[in-house]
């Protein structure tokens, strides 16, 4: 969608659905290394084909593999074109990419995040290294760039409150530009990798405990209870080595309205180098949300101060 026809749908912005997808490079670069990797590759391709049919005008991504320190960063280069070699799995080859980003959305997203008190900035530089997770997701879901996308980084210092607010800011931008979007959380479930080189055919989830937790999370997502999983993210992460504290699910749930009223479908679950890789599709359902008790706070704007310990530069110390 171009900027010129945006006004036509202003006010009609909507999140059509959400996807949770893994981002390990084997799925893209070595799908036949293991039947599970092939299955994930094909499941993500199928999920991508469905996006071409459901009216999605924009893909918004949160990738745990793109980390940032100065707040959140939004990829705003309209056509990122470069090469990527994975830091661990460089032997699998080079990912050449030429993507289509929605720079207008990136700027709106940055503004909405700023309005909610977050530190945020867009990045658009030749040679900017788009992370492996974003590339695996975009190359499989959207190989021909038929749908423009926008990616946000995973801030290392952000905890739940900021990540939830980021999700809400994402929704603000979607509504402001009147876009029909699908949200994509690029994250492993359990993220404990093998620390030795394995024969790909021997791949499996790193431990029975990680596997059990992954299956429990997927069972709940399969029931459409996204906010329940968001509330469980801390427990899951500490018990099962969640990918970057499983923050991506906080963002996804906040963007999708912090609700349990979804039709959830677990499209796939496999191991990739010991980690849990799930492909989950969530679509808003007509039924009402369950009346559940939540422990976590629900922040609207960020007013936190990380400088409470900070030295005053004028201090005589």
């Amino acid at each position: 969608m171009t900027g010129s026809n945006r006004g036509k749908s202003a006010g009609s912005g909507a999140v059509l659905g959400g996807l949770l997808v893994p981002g390990k490079p084997q799925i893209l670069l070595d799908p036949d290394g293991n039947p599970g990797w092939r299955s994930l590759h094909d499941s993500m391709r199928k999920a991508g084909e469905a996006l071409m049919e459901n009216g999605t005008e924009l893909l918004v991504l949160y990738s745990t593999q793109w980390t940032s320190i100065i707040g959140h960063q939004f990829l705003a280069d309209p056509e990122p074109k470069w090469t990527r070699v994975d830091e661990d799995f460089h032997e699998l080859g080079t990912i050449d990419y030429h993507l289509k980003m929605d720079a207008e959305f990136a700027e709106s997203w940055r503004q909405k995040a700023t309005d909610r008190g977050l530190t945020a900035r867009t990045v658009a530089y030749e040679g900017f290294p788009v992370d492996t997770g974003s590339l695996v997701a975009l190359k499989l879901l959207n190989p021909e760039n038929r749908i423009p996308a926008c990616v946000v980084s995973c801030n290392m210092y952000a905890d739940r409150a900021e990540t939830v607010i980021l999700g809400k800011a994402t929704r603000d931008a979607v509504e402001a530009l009147g876009l029909k979007v699908t949200a994509v959380a690029v994250s492993a479930l359990s993220n404990r990798m093998w620390t030795r080189f394995i024969d790909p055919v021997d791949d499996r989830i790193h431990s029975a405990k990680d596997d059990e937790w992954n299956r429990k999370i997927l069972e709940i997502l399969g029931e459409g209870r996204l906010e329940d999983v968001s509330q469980l993210a801390r427990e899951f992460s500490s018990q099962a080595h969640g990918d970057n504290r499983f923050k991506a699910i906080w963002w996804l749930s906040a963007l999708m309205g912090q609700d349990n009223a979804f039709q959830g479908r677990v499209l796939d679950y496999q191991a990739v180098w010991g980690t849990g890789a799930g492909v989950v599709d969530l679509v808003p359902a007509r039924r009402g949300s369950s009346n559940l008790e939540y422990d976590e706070d629900d922040a609207q704007t960020w007013g936190g101060d990380r400088g409470v310990l900070s030295s005053n530069p004028g201090e005589a110390t």
Binding site: S68, D88, H90, D131, M193, W194, T195, R196
Partner: peptide, 21 residues
């Protein structure tokens, strides 16, 4: 790297390195 300790082992490298952070 998670899988062991890696060491650069091509004779030369040439390119543009943009810090993602």
């Amino acid at each position: 790297t998670v899988v062991g300790h890696h060491v650069l082992a091509c004779p030369e490298f040439k390119g543009l390195s943009v810090d993602p952070v």
